[in-house]
Each structure stands twice: as structure tokens, then as C-alpha cells.
Design a protein around this nucleic acid. Structure first.
Lengths: 254, 254
DNA sequence: AAGTGGTCTAGACCACGTC
DNA sequence: ACGTGGTCTAGACCACTTT
């Protein structure tokens, strides 16, 4: 379990290929690899910094820096006095990590997910491009509603690679209470790491208007999201229509 | 220039007031204070880590950790071999730091700001609440257009506390080529640190439709932004209407 | 008491930029 | 050659949690 270490012993790096990476990043990559391989499951503790340090033959400080970055990436969660844990969408604090929608009155009631439909299909051009799979490859499509209290607020259409979600159907969705991503993580071993959203404003068509209980033509947010798992692999593409009559999309800019 | 240091020597912190803060955070606060007092200007280098360490009577590592956090907060910029610099909106890479709008075709041409109007007024209820000032206090209102190439894409209405932007008028705005925030920073010493945006979908009214060259009633993004300077003090409130026919609002979720 | 992460220090050396 | 930030190490001690 040795590390390369002396990648930087060579001078003139500036004229060579930019192959240099500090030790702690190599350690980070190794931990990432172990995570990806499922060596430790979401919600569980990883070995202590000391253990990892001796396993990789580096100092504790170097492991520490690697873990620091992974905690900043939301891959690990540190808990003083207890240990370092693999981040999980089952964690209540992370359940709606990617949902930026907030009620206009301060009510921070959690949303409820209502699955409407779930069927199999073949990837069209757009889905194949977004998911990085072959056109015609099997996909799963989910339609679901998000409610805040009694109010329908978001209608989502979700596209998943069929290969990775064998056995996913409407019943499974309805039996699960929790976020979609916690289901994906728990039942299919798919961990959603990061996502990218493209937001536009569109007019409600008839079907969206019906579900969201707004007038046809009402302006809605169209939120297209591509979600990635380890290795920047896209594994979900979804399009949501958000009713912003009583909610808004909140974004912090730093 | 001494630091308290031993705030943590006392045991039983858990039952006392949560006054504890590690040394590096105290150092961070001190550097922040110096920054706020204008000891070093945006774009300039701050003293080296060694200098700061001896100034504050701590080790270089502690200063380092303080600076690390401030760099993560986009307050400072590290440059290996050169020094650490005060972040500036004049920096080309930071000029449109808060603008999330992206052309749908990969064209990453920079937008151009076209000031339309600038006048003085008294703060209404909403402006006073958003800016944390008295109702009736003097404010400045700016209307401006953002163009990507020839296309008008965003119409902004911007509210500023009058006290902090003495001498700001349409002519000043038109003479400046660069981002608004670089103007604010350079001419008025106001440094925008972070912002919060609330996004909704609305229908274009007649005046917005005219300026953006879209049909009345077209769905637009309404982006309300409150921008903060040091000490979480709000110093700008703006509302933008974004035409998303050929652009989208891009948001990274981690 | 023992184990974990969190802080602080000191020293050595590397990579980068400038003189 | 020198000064800057960047990496790596080793050791001491603090704070939190569990046993």
C-alpha cells in the first residue's frame, strides 16, 4: 500500500508535463478509491487518521489535509471525539442538500416527495448526451411531485440509466419515505456527489399547470439538473418545473 | 498587538457560554479588521506569513490556517512565490464573480454593462428592510442593461444607500468601463464580499419587454440580490430580470 | 482512562517568481 | 541568491465522546 511520494523530486517541472501532485492529494485519491470501492459504507466511520497514516506510510498531518479537502467536498463528515464518517444522503441534515427551494414565509417545513409514475424507455438524443450513454440504451423515467405541506410546488421528470437502477419501479418509490437520493444510495449503491443546474424561465403548459394547480401560461422556473457520482460520472438527469408563487430558489454567492 | 490566546485554558467549556474560538480564528479576525480598516488595498499584497506571524506573536502555521480560510472565503488570493493579495473585483478573473448567466451556445463572451438611468430617492419600506437602513433615508437607484454581444439579456434595478455612494451619478457610471463592483470598490471603497439571490419566474411587463426585446408576458427570471460587505452589512439590493431565451442561470451544487 | 479529531508549534525542504 | 507560499513531518497539548 505504498505511495509514490517523490513525484516532485524532479526539477524543471514548469517545462515538463504537469504530472505533479502533492502527497496529500495522492492520499486523497487513495481514500476516494476506497470509498468508491465501497470499503466503507455511507454513514459509517472510516479509520482514524492515525490508522490511515500508518496504512499509507505518511504522517497524520498529511492524512489530515487529505480528509480536510474531502470534508470540504462533502464526501466525509468529521465529528470531534468520534471519528470521520462517510457522508450520506440518509443524514437528515443532508437529505435535501441539493434542493434550493425555500418558502417565502419563513416556514422551513420539509418537502414531501410524491411519485406519480415510473417507466422504462430507450434513451433519446438528449438523455444520452446528458447521461453519457448510448442512444437507445435503457433508461428509467420517473415523474414525481414535490409538496410543501399541502401545496404542490415542483413537478420533476427524472432520467436514470437503466443499467444502474435495476429493479427500480413505482412501488419501490412509493414504499420509500425519504429523499430520492437516499433511496438511490441505500438500494442501488449510487452516491450523488455533486450536481449542476441550468435554470430558465418558461410558461406552464397544460399538464404542468394542472399538477401544480396554476393557470396555464404561468411563469415557472425550469431547473435542469445533471447529477454526478464518483469520477464525475453523470448518473441522473432531471428537469423540474418550480412554481414560484410562494417559494423562491435561494442561492448563496461567495 | 497581543492576542488573547488562552481562551481555551478553561475547562468545562460545554457548560459555559460558547465564547471559545481557536487562535487561528482570532488571527483571522485581526487580519479581517486590518482589511476592513483599509490597511491594505484591494489588489495589493499583504505582509508575508512570517511577518504576520511575528506581528501577532504566533507561529507561521497559525497565520497560514487563518489565511487559508480567508482565501476560501475569496477575501484573499494566494500566489505562490509572490505573496498573498487582497481580492479585488478589478481582477479580470473576479469581475463577474457573482454573475451566473451563461450563453446556451458555448460562447463565453463577457457581458457589457449599459447604464440607463441613475437617480436619488428616499428608501421605501422594502429597500429599507433589504438595506438595513431607515425608511426615508437617501438611496440611489440605478437602471442598467446587460448585453452579451448585441443581445440585451438582463435589465437590472439597483438600490444603494445614498450615504455610502456620495457622488455616484449616471455620468460616473458611463465613464467607467468595468464591472459595477469594481467601480464601487475603486471609487467608493465598498467591497462586495458575498451575496444572496432569490430567484423566481415572472412574466415580462411592458417596459421590461421593450428593453429586452421580447414579447410582453414572456417568462423571465426575477433575480433579487442582496450584496454584503464586511461584517455582513448589506450595501446593495438589486432586482434583475433575465431573458432566458438564449442564456441560462448556471448553478453548481456541492 | 482511552481514543478520536482539533489546535499549535518548530523545523526542514520544495516550487515558484524576482532580482 | 533570496523571498514567497506550498508541502511534509513530529510532537505536544486541548476538546469531545465513549467506556
Amino acid at each position: 500500500m505504498d505511495v509514490l511520494k517523490n513525484l516532485c523530486s524532479n526539477k524543471r517541472m514548469s517545462h515538463d508535463a504537469p504530472t505533479f501532485s502533492p502527497l496529500y492529494r495522492q492520499i486523497k485519491a487513495l481514500i476516494l478509491q476506497a470509498l468508491e470501492a465501497g470499503e466503507w459504507r455511507p454513514g459509517q466511520a472510516i479509520p482514524s487518521e492515525q490508522e490511515l497514516a500508518s496504512r499509507f506510510n505518511v504522517s497524520q498531518g498529511t492524512v489530515r489535509k487529505a480528509i480536510d479537502e474531502m470534508a470540504a467536498d462533502n464526501l466525509l463528515v468529521r465529528k470531534q471525539g468520534k471519528g470521520t464518517y462517510v457522508a450520506s444522503h440518509n443524514d437528515p441534515r443532508a437529505m435535501f442538500r441539493f434542493l434550493r427551494l425555500v418558502p417565502m414565509d419563513g416556514n422551513l417545513s420539509h418537502p414531501q416527495s410524491v411519485p406519480l409514475d415510473c417507466w422504462r424507455a430507450k434513451a433519446g438524443q438528449e438523455a444520452s448526451r446528458m447521461l453519457g450513454i448510448e442512444p437507445g440504451a435503457p433508461i428509467i423515467i420517473i415523474r414525481r411531485l414535490l409538496r410543501f405541506g399541502a401545496k404542490p410546488v415542483v413537478i420533476d421528470e427524472i432520467y436514470l440509466p437503466g443499467d444502474l437502477f435495476q429493479g427500480l419501479n413505482l412501488e419501490v418509490l412509493q414504499d420509500w419515505n425519504g429523499s430520492l437520493y437516499s433511496l438511490f444510495e441505500t438500494r442501488f449503491g449510487m452516491r450523488m456527489i455533486r450536481a449542476q443546474e441550468r435554470i430558465r424561465a418558461v410558461a406552464a403548459d397544460r399538464s404542468a399547470a394542472e399538477v401544480l394547480k396554476v393557470a396555464e401560461g404561468t411563469s415557472l422556473l425550469s431547473v435542469e439538473r445533471v447529477t454526478y457520482t464518483y469520477g464525475d460520472k453523470p448518473v441522473e438527469w432531471r428537469r423540474g418545473l418550480y412554481s414560484t408563487a410562494e417559494h423562491f430558489y435561494l442561492n448563496e454567492l461567495n
